[in-house]
Amino acid sequence: MMTEISLHVLDIVENSTKAGAKLVRIGVAVDHTADSLTVTVDDDGAGMDEAQVARVTDPFYTSRTTRKVGLGVPFFKYAAEITGGTFCITSQKGVGTKVEARFVLSSIDCIPLGDIGATIFTLVICHQDTDFVYTYGCRGAEGMKAFTLDTRELREILGGVPFDEPDVSAYIKDYLRENKEEVDGQGPI
C-alpha cells in the first residue's frame, strides 16, 4: 500500500512514460466545497485495447514479465474507492490513456496527498525526454486558485540548459513548493 496519494501519482505516471508518452497531463484538483480531491493523468502513450483496459484493475494482470502480479492500478483504485470516491480508466490503442481518481477528503480512510511537489519534481528531472503539464488547483470558500507547470514552456526558455542543472532544478523545486503554498492559502490539505 502507498502512504500518500502523491506516491500513487508517481507510480501511475511511470506507466505513462513506460508506454512511450511524449506528453503527460497531470492534474490535482482539491475542492473543499465538494469535499473532494481529484487526480487525473492523461497521456499520449501507446494506449490499450478494450480487453487490456478491462483487465488492468485486476491485480493478477500485468504487462511485465518479471512477475505475475501488477499492483499499481489496483492499489490506486482501491485507495480512491475506499473513501467513497470513484476510479475510472479509459484508453484507446495508439491514442493514449486517461486515469481519473476522486477521493472524498473527509473520509477517515482518505490517505494524505503528501509531497506532490517531490513527485512532480522526480518525474520532470528523471524523464527529460517527456513533457509534463502539471496543474494544481484548490477551490475553497474564497474561490478557485490554480497554477501550472508546463515543461514545454521551461524547455523553450532554457534553450539547451538541462533540467538537472543545479540552479534550474532548485528553481523547479521552489516553483512547485511556493506556488502550491499560495494556492492552498487557508492551510495545506
Binding site: L154, L158, V161, V168, Y171, D174, E178, N179
Partner: peptide, 16 residues
C-alpha cells in the same frame, strides 16, 4: 506567485 522571469535570469547566467 513564482514566475518564469526568474528562470530567464538563470538561463542568461548559465548559457555558455
Amino acid at each position: 506567485m513564482k514566475t518564469l522571469e526568474e528562470l530567464r535570469a538563470i538561463r542568461d547566467r548559465m548559457q555558455g
